[in-house]
Simulated scan of single mutants.
Amino acid sequence: MTYKQPVSVLVLIHTRDLRVLLLERCDFADAWQSVTGSREGEESLAETARREVLEETGIDAAHYALRDWQCSTDYDIYERWRHRYAPGVTVNTEHVFSLEVPDGIAVRLAPREHRRYRWLSWQAAAEAVFSPSNAEALRQLPARFGS
C-alpha cells in the first residue's frame, strides 16, 4: 500500500472581493472545506497546490495568481483518515496557499471527492468549515489582501 505523505496544502480559492469557494466532502457529510491535498512524490508544494486545485475543481491554477503564504500548521490527523498514512503517523503539516480567480469561474467537482460547492463571504466561509486550520486561514485572508 502507498501511504499519503503527512505534508499537505490548503488552498483558499477566492475572488477579488474575497468570496471563497468551499467544497463539501463526499466521505464526511456537511463537512465543508477549501481545497486540500497531500504532496505526491517529490513535487514542490506549489505543484501540489496546482494539482489539487485542478483535480478538485477543474480550475487550472497556472492561469491565475497562486500565492504561497509561507506559513504552515501542524495538526493531528483525524482518526477517520489515519489509515491513509504510514503506521504511527498522527501529525500532518499543512502549508497555506491562496488563489485569486475571476467571478463566475466554472467549477467542475471531482465526483468521488466532493458532492457540492458554494461561494461564501470569507466570514461565512470561516464559520462553515470543519477544520480549525482552514477557519484560521480564512480569517487571515482580508489582512493578506488589504480588504
Rank of each mutant, 00 (worst) to 15 (best):
M1A: 12
K4L: 12
K4I: 02
S8L: 03
V9K: 04
H14F: 11
T15D: 08
T15V: 07
T15Q: 09
T15L: 09
D17G: 03
D17M: 06
L18K: 10
L22M: 12
E24D: 07
C26K: 13
A29W: 11
A29Q: 15
D30Y: 00
A31N: 04
Q33L: 15
S34E: 14
T36I: 13
G37K: 09
G37F: 07
S38V: 02
G41P: 03
G41C: 01
G41V: 00
G41H: 03
E42W: 03
E42D: 11
E43R: 00
E43N: 01
S44F: 04
A46D: 08
A46P: 00
T48D: 02
R50D: 14
E52K: 15
V53M: 03
V53Y: 02
E55G: 09
E55M: 05
L66T: 08
W69S: 02
W69G: 04
T73H: 14
D74P: 01
D74H: 01
D74W: 01
I77K: 06
I77H: 04
Y78T: 13
W81H: 15
H83I: 09
R84F: 13
R84V: 07
G88C: 08
T90G: 04
V91F: 08
N92C: 08
T93D: 04
H95L: 03
H95Y: 13
V96D: 12
S98Q: 06
S98F: 00
S98P: 06
L99C: 04
V101K: 06
V101N: 07
P102R: 01
D103Y: 03
G104R: 00
R108I: 11
R108V: 13
L109E: 11
E113M: 08
E113S: 04
H114T: 02
H114E: 02
R116Q: 07
Y117L: 08
R118E: 15
W119E: 06
W119L: 09
W119Y: 01
L120E: 12
L120P: 00
Q123V: 07
A125S: 02
E127C: 07
E127W: 06
F130E: 13
S131A: 14
P132G: 09
P132C: 05
P132T: 10
N134E: 12
N134Q: 09
E136H: 15
E136L: 15
A137F: 00
R139G: 11
P142S: 02
A143K: 10
G146P: 04
G146W: 10
S147W: 10
S147G: 11
